[in-house]
Amino acid sequence: MRQNVAPTKTNLLSLKSELKFARLGYELLDQKRNILVIELLNLVDQAVDSQDRVDRALSVAYESLEAAALAVGKRKVLTISSAVNIETKVDISRRKIMGVSLPVVDTSFVEHGPYYSPMGTSYWIDSSLQEFKKALELMGRLAELKISIIRLANEVRKTIRKVNALDKIAIPELTESVAFIQERLEENERDMLILMKMVKQRLENRKE
């Protein structure tokens, strides 16, 4: 119960208003928490799948690179790799869920070619380039998901603390304070009623 609160009708109305606001805030925060948790679980599932995709893509890319090295030799692959001129562009935009800003990563490539002659090369050279580009795109998506999970998890923790503070502290204290003031006001009204009856009785006795 709040300390040093005078049992007046003004304070009673004020506390009732605060209590109503606290209950509304609790309901809204509880809904926010549920939405955030659902979205967080969804992103975790996506991240698990995305991690598997990245692992598979990198595995395929390195297998293609090894095949290229076997086909034309490591020195040739190194020479060709130094001639590769591909610009990687990573655009980061934003989206919001319940006020939480989450990144959206878009990875694209601009090829400035031809950067090496196809003569004396192997299919595996082009294959490894394409596979590594796919892996980079998937890694961008995985980074987006991981950052989003961290931010949502932090927001869920903050929201849970606020919900618990309202549910365990603020609302019970306000409820107790309202009940205390109502009880005191009712006692005062009863005392006043008794006093008025006594005064009335004395006046009647004097008239007699």
Rank of each mutant, 00 (worst) to 15 (best):
S122R: 05
S59K: 13
E66Y: 11
V90S: 11
L129A: 02
V163R: 00
L65G: 04
S50M: 15
L58P: 02
F132L: 02
I147A: 04
R157H: 12
V60N: 05
Y115N: 04
K162V: 06
R94L: 11
F132C: 03
S108L: 06
A57E: 04
S64W: 04
V156F: 06
A71I: 10
I169F: 05
R157V: 12
Q46L: 15
S108Y: 04
A143K: 09
D55E: 13
P172K: 03
K146C: 07
A68E: 04
V60F: 05
A153I: 05
L142C: 05
E155F: 00
L152R: 02
K74C: 08
E144L: 04
E155K: 03
E131Y: 03
K146L: 14
G73K: 05
A135S: 10
I80Q: 00
I169G: 05
V48D: 13
E66W: 08
L145N: 00
V163T: 08
A153K: 11
L138D: 06
S64I: 03
F109C: 07
F132E: 00
R53H: 14
E131I: 04
L136T: 13
A57H: 03
K74V: 15
A57L: 05
D91R: 15
T79H: 14
V77H: 00
V60I: 14
K158V: 08
T107H: 07
E66M: 08
E137D: 06
E144K: 01
L145Q: 01
K96R: 10
A67I: 12
A68C: 11
K74W: 11
D106F: 10
I92T: 15
S101N: 13
K162R: 08
L136R: 14
S148R: 01
G99R: 02
A71G: 07
D126L: 08
V54S: 00
V90Q: 12
G140N: 02
R157Y: 09
E155R: 05
S108A: 10
A143S: 13
L152W: 04
I125T: 03
Y116P: 01
Q46I: 06
I97R: 04
V60P: 00
S81R: 01
W124G: 00
S148Y: 02
S82M: 12
K133F: 08
N164V: 12
I92Y: 12
L78H: 11
E144N: 04
V77T: 06
V104M: 08
T79P: 02
A83G: 15
R161M: 12
R157S: 12
V100Q: 02
I160M: 12
N85C: 09
R151T: 05
R151P: 01
V104N: 09
D55N: 15
S117R: 05
I92E: 15
K162C: 06
N154T: 11
V110M: 01
D91Y: 13
P172A: 08
R75K: 14
